[in-house]
Amino acid sequence: MTMSAATQNAFAIGLFSTTPPPSSLTAWNGTALERRYSVYRNNIIASLTEALVSRFPAALNIVGPDFFRAMAQAFIRLHPPRSPLLLAYGDDFPDFVAGFEPARELAYLPDVMRLEVARGRAYHAEEAVPLEARTLADVEPHRLRTLIFKPHPSLSVISSPYPVATIWAMNSGGRPLAALDDWLGEDILVVRPRMTVEMSGLPPGGAAFFRHLAAGVNLAGAADAVQHAEARFDLSANLAILLRSGAFTAFSQGTSDENRHDA
């Protein structure tokens, strides 16, 4: 390693430690450099913490700023960003929080954060024009079964044993904070059909149905697969959500009535 490369290496390693500043550094007025070097240490942690704050506003609201910052800083030290693209930094923060001992009592928190990740991805996803309901009206009824849908680039389906969308809304100003009478799981479709990220609660079986469709399974294949596992599955209710949400941008005619995964 050249001298300057070694200097940078020592500077970088010291940023995430509490050891004295590297010996290659100087100042005009003396040899104590702790505060000067700490400006860089603090900038890094503070700016990365802010990046996570901006991606997880509902989680911040749930646990409060002090707890969130402590949790974020523990994450940053173990998982610093690998790219200057901070708009994607923290995709794995919910997984970290799931194993973060001090947050263990908030079992729903990682799923609320996964919903925030999905919303963030949708926000930055490529533009695409959603399918218009009337274009489906031209399809001959007997051909509907083999239709294969193209998912909107912003589409995600989040499933949780907790009422995550309700909790998210209560912590995002969408509805007032209140005790929940029914602590039921929720499945949510997240999509940004135009400029606003939208969420739709899915009825029983809907999450699996939309995941099959997004993976390229044709309409009949997706419906059949779900009906086997979920007796309450209501195809027409889910089709209404499919058309209303903007979750798909186009469809094509599959060649057979078999399930397809290669579309």
Partner: peptide, 19 residues
């Protein structure tokens, strides 16, 4: 601002040498 594949998200100083 990057070192060994880690993005440090700050504008860090460098020594000024020929190298």
């Amino acid at each position: 601002s990057s070192h060994d594949g880690v993005f440090l998200n700050d504008l860090l100083p460098l020594p000024y040498t020929r190298e």
